[in-house]
Simulated assay, not measured.
Amino acid sequence: MIGLIELHSFIDYIQLEKNYSNLTVHEYDKDIEQFLLFLEREGVSHLNEVEYVHARLFVTTLYEKKLARTSISRKISSVRSFYKFLHKEYNIRDEAFQSLYHPKKEEKLPHFFYEEEMEKLFEANKGTDLLSLRNMALLELLYATGIRVSELISIEMSHIDKSYGIVRVMGKGRKERYVPVGDYALLAVEEYVEKSRFKLMKYTSHSFLFVNSRGHHLTTSGVRHILNEMIKKASMHTTIYPHMLRHTFATHLLNNGADLRSVQELLGHSHLTSTQIYTHVTKEHLRKTYMNAHPRA
């Protein structure tokens, strides 16, 4: 397959110099390899031979596979970044993808829980056994901070400062930020650490805050399983995915008067446009409140 040496150089670059996360590196690798296989099928023998027509045809094949627009957009960005690197390092022309448009984003409003639903979730999952204490700390922390699950499972014991009520998290692109933590979450984490974590870690030793039933470092799939079990326990007829708690955190803040810039900073968004989707949610919430409450609505 053409371009494998260049691909390996690019992967080393984004991994070592740009310090991208393992998941991001894997996505780039997968996307670009898919493009290189496409070029091979099209009879292109060198990366310098790629023209705009090849770029357009590649995108067309992605649409034919009925991929989501977000996936197509990501693949375009991956190959565009690859060619930018090729131009800089190997003097290979990169015009083919420069003028290629990203597909228009599908306007999907993020799903979130209403405040009464969160109360029901918390109430149903109270308990004093080892795993209930851990689960409550996990739920409280996700809701209190709006952090991503990848950020949650990376938290170490030393990252939580109880005196200042903050947690240090490592976000996308290895960007570090400090997020405030409310009293409910701090108390839940403290109770979990004092009464549960040490006992769960009877045969293991590491510094990560959240552990599984055998004391090992909790994984993202482990968090998904825990949240699904908590939903079942609350008899809530809905699906849950970890990002819903992040959406809930942002929506509840805005509904209760927080400004958009502050929410952006708390979420760790690089651009305000990423945070603005939540204004659509709050507007819809206001509209429903009006329709339900106004006598002549």
Rank of each mutant, 00 (worst) to 15 (best):
A68M: 11
K195D: 01
F112I: 00
S213C: 11
E119D: 15
E116H: 15
M157F: 15
Y28L: 06
Y278N: 00
S21L: 13
F210R: 00
S158M: 10
E106L: 01
L152F: 09
F113S: 11
L227W: 11
F82W: 08
L272W: 06
S99I: 11
S78Y: 00
I226Y: 02
P295E: 00
E191P: 00
G268W: 07
I226H: 00
K120M: 15
L186Y: 11
A124S: 07
K18N: 14
E284T: 04
L253H: 01
H159M: 13
L121S: 05
N135F: 04
R224E: 14
H217D: 10
H102K: 15
L37Q: 05
S9A: 11
Y83N: 00
G43R: 05
V179K: 03
T60E: 03
N256T: 05
N255R: 13
D129L: 07
P242Y: 01
I277N: 03
S270R: 15
M136H: 06
A188L: 05
L209M: 04
I155W: 01
N228T: 05
F208Y: 08
G146H: 00
E51N: 14
E33R: 05
Q15A: 15
R168F: 04
D161C: 02
I231W: 13
M1Y: 09
T128K: 14
Y28N: 10
K108R: 12
K195M: 12
H111K: 14
R197G: 11
M291W: 07
L152T: 01
L218H: 01
